[in-house]
């Protein structure tokens, strides 16, 4: 059973997030270990496995980048671990600019600049998500989708780094 099947969703990039959340809660309500405290150890084990699987599935499908990577995985494409760094030139330049802006703001201890950078990257991420919806759901162009997915994963990583820096500065 794949993650989409678990939640009764069609395996595509655009998903009904309300349905995902509702069905996640339904599944947890029937499979969570709290429901099996007085049950047999076989049932406890079963509950642990199902609840764990549901948590991983929910986490993956909730995040656009992980969801895209998972869809590619279903096509036999490993977008995360692939060492192929064949990214378009303009995105590589953009990457370097973002990293530099992050380092500058970090050294200047400029939280506002970091927040602005986050907002800028979120806008870019939104655009990528729209592209991905089309690439996966309409065109079924997995080659280009792989490229866009890796851009999205990259943005997520830098955003996480920025969050970490803000956390350090903002105490």
């Amino acid at each position: 059973m794949n993650y989409f099947e678990l939640f009764g969703l069609i395996p595509q990039f655009s998903i009904d997030s309300t349905k995902l959340e509702t069905n996640f809660r339904e599944i947890q309500s029937s499979s969570h270990p709290d429901r099996f405290v007085t049950c047999t150890s076989a049932e406890k084990l079963q509950s642990m496995q199902t609840a764990t699987f549901a948590n991983s599935a929910y986490l993956t499908l909730k995040s656009p980048a992980l969801r895209a990577a998972y869809l590619l995985g279903l096509q036999g494409i490993d977008a995360i671990h692939e060492t192929n760094t064949n990214m378009p030139h303009d995105f590589l330049m953009q990457q370097m600019e973002w990293r530099e802006a992050m380092d500058d703001a970090k050294h200047a201890k400029d939280v506002v600049a970091l927040e602005n950078l986050l907002a800028e990257m979120q806008t870019e991420a939104k655009q990528l998500q729209e592209n991905l919806a089309e690439l996966f759901d309409t065109k079924q162009n997995f080659l280009v989708a792989t490229e866009e997915t890796r851009k999205l994963i990259f943005i997520d990583k830098v955003c996480a780094d920025i969050h970490k820096i803000i956390e350090h500065l903002d105490v």
């Binding site: 339904e26 029937s30 499979s31 047999t40 150890s41 076989a42 049932e43 084990l45 079963q46 509950s47």
Partner: peptide, 27 residues
Amino acid sequence: ALNIATEAFAAKRMDASVSRALAGKNL
């Protein structure tokens, strides 16, 4: 021994329970 003997049964019940949950039926 009884625990081990009921492992497969537990798995079937869990599957059934999850599908019931998704079918929106009241348990």
